[in-house]
Design a protein around this nucleic acid. Structure first.
Lengths: 334, 334
DNA sequence: TATTTAAGCTAAAAGGATTTATTAAGCAAA
DNA sequence: TTTGCTTAATAAATCCTTTTAGCTTAAATA
């Protein structure tokens, strides 16, 4: 177990000062007028002995950790997992690392996480905010920490966010159902006032209102067990004799599919929010309102990097269009 | 933007020394014989002003960061995503945080990641090792950093690991095929010498040898595109007139399903390694060799925490049994 | 009375970098 | 000779804790 080599060791070995070595290593040789010969000598030696600075000491001094806090609803949900993966790859190229935690939409946990990440002095935050953390986020922003929200936003907090056009997505899906000739079109959502849920509901309602059709809306408790949800969905579809259902999240749609399997009833036409392997492979394949995952990730990173470099000008609210991927599940067979 | 409050501010405000405050905050009041009245006075004040120590300074001094490096093949694969989620939840309770990166099985990236996490002085590592990183891991272990491998291990490196019993799992699956009366049983795996792949192949071979049956083995390139893989699988199944196929990973099996859909041929009986929502919902439901994800996560954490506390006695090699979850896809209908 | 012992607290070092302010030497101009 | 300006480098301060080693004071023991 050999001892770590320090910048002072380098300085001593070469008979120069620590300052000089530090300047050279931080690309300030030119600016600080260190001679080229010495610069080369130091760099060669550093390479030879494989010196790597202590990042903690560096961070303590500079206040920068090169770490980004990713606070996400649930890393095991493919939608979030995929975004996490894209984000991670992108920031990696810029020398940043990700420290993450899942919130499970628990606002207490979210607050705690933000606090802890902040104590760890992450350089910036990427957050899927749960409800009731407006103040926490505001404090963050007031203390000048770069924050980008995604998937949903907090109307009362002025901050950058990147979301999908949930309203239009739900609207389009509902219109599609109507065009296909479905009569009794339901929506399955969650007991949640988060903006993405509110907008999906809104898009559905707007379309239904336009068609002068009765709305059928079923909300599931956030903390309901899957078994409970399965039964509730069965009841919802059968009792209302629905011939088409729009699901506000991928896992709700999956629960719907399981419900059909368990209670062995014929599923109505289906559209799910967020694509998922299950939907592509299902027989019939499930139509989805697909969010532009890669674009979302790209925009999040771009905004955050600008903010980290202090180059961000105005606050950005980005709403990216969804794509309705029509598959068999929403086509009426006559 | 108010200034951060420091431990020296507390000391000054109360007219005591920084040392005293530090002792009290680190639960050493008793040990260091600080009077109870002073202890209380300090704690009350700290609470009142909401002082939180600078974790970077703390880490610099103590050498502990309370961060664990999770280096995982692919966070967007539900198998890994789920394990990540479980690990994260467990270590969170112990005050640790996770910093992670996906390797995509790229050994160069893995080496780089280990190096960077090490520079950041993570307290311990959880790694799904890719091939060719034996030396990197050895160095880590020699410098006394706690490391736990999972999903696969490195035969040449003496370190703790937690894996599923891949050999037995594949063996059981193959036996099950045979019992069901399938004649031409194939295996789809990867061009990879990682232990989990080797063992799954081994289990399949042992069973096939016992039954004196010809083996049909198709390996896919790690870097093959999904489209290529889909076509290759089609060819493999049809050309060999296979009536049963065991897939060595969940995504290979999914590719297999897609292959059936694309080329519109009747799929043989199927068994997949690792469960996945797709398999539960598929029509017919897919039989799987399911890994005990929760147990795996628990054991990883337990071992790591013991090592972090310096209480680990011997090196642990844990091999946990898989469960064959028989569903419709592997039942021969007569 | 002189010396230990214990209680209660603290000054200063250490951890390892970055950054500010300063110096020393050499040369040109006044 | 003095002043001023470059160039090339450095000493020391700083970031904020924890921890080592030690200092008072008072009571207990020899």
């Amino acid at each position: 177990m050999k001892k770590r080599i320090l910048i002072s060791d380098i300085a001593k070995a070469l008979g120069v000062s620590v300052t000089t070595v530090s300047f050279i290593l931080n690309d300030k040789a030119k600016e600080k007028r260190i001679s080229e010969s010495l610069t080369k000598r130091v760099l060669d030696y550093v390479k030879k002995v494989g010196y790597k600075p202590n990042e903690l000491a560096k961070s303590l001094r500079t206040g920068k950790t090169k770490i980004i806090g990713l606070i996400i609803e649930d890393i095991s949900n493919p939608f979030f997992g995929n975004i996490a993966r894209l984000i991670e790859t992108k920031v990696y190229e810029q020398g940043y690392r990700i420290i993450y935690c899942s919130t499970n939409n628990d606002s207490e946990k979210t607050k705690e996480l933000i606090g802890m990440f902040n104590d760890r002095q992450v350089d910036g935050f990427i957050i899927t905010p749960s409800e009731g953390i407006e103040e926490t986020i505001s404090n963050l922003i007031q203390s000048n920490v770069p924050v980008v929200l995604f998937d949903r936003y907090l109307p009362e907090v002025e901050t950058d966010y990147v979301i999908a056009d949930n309203f239009q997505g739900a609207f389009d899906a509902t219109v599609h159902f109507n065009e296909q000739g479905y009569k009794r079109i339901g929506l399955v959502s969650l007991y949640s006032d988060q903006t993405q849920m509110r907008d999906r509901l809104g898009g559905y309602m707007k379309a239904m209102d336009q068609f002068k059709k009765q709305a059928y809306i079923k909300k599931i408790q956030l903390d309901a067990s899957e078994a409970e949800a399965i039964d509730e969905l069965h009841e919802f579809v059968v009792d209302n004799r629905l011939d088409a259902v729009l699901f506000a999240t991928n896992y709700l749609a999956i629960t719907g599919l399981k419900s059909g399997k368990k209670h062995n009833y014929k599923l109505p036409a289906l559209i799910a929010f967020d694509d998922h392997t299950v939907f592509k492979l299902h027989e019939p394949a499930i139509t989805v309102v697909s969010q532009p995952i890669e674009e979302i990730a790209n925009h999040i990173i771009n905004i955050l990097l600008l903010k980290l470099q202090g180059k961000a000008k105005a606050i950005k609210h980005l709403t990216l269009p969804c794509e309705l991927k029509v598959r068999e599940s929403s086509i009426l067979k006559r």
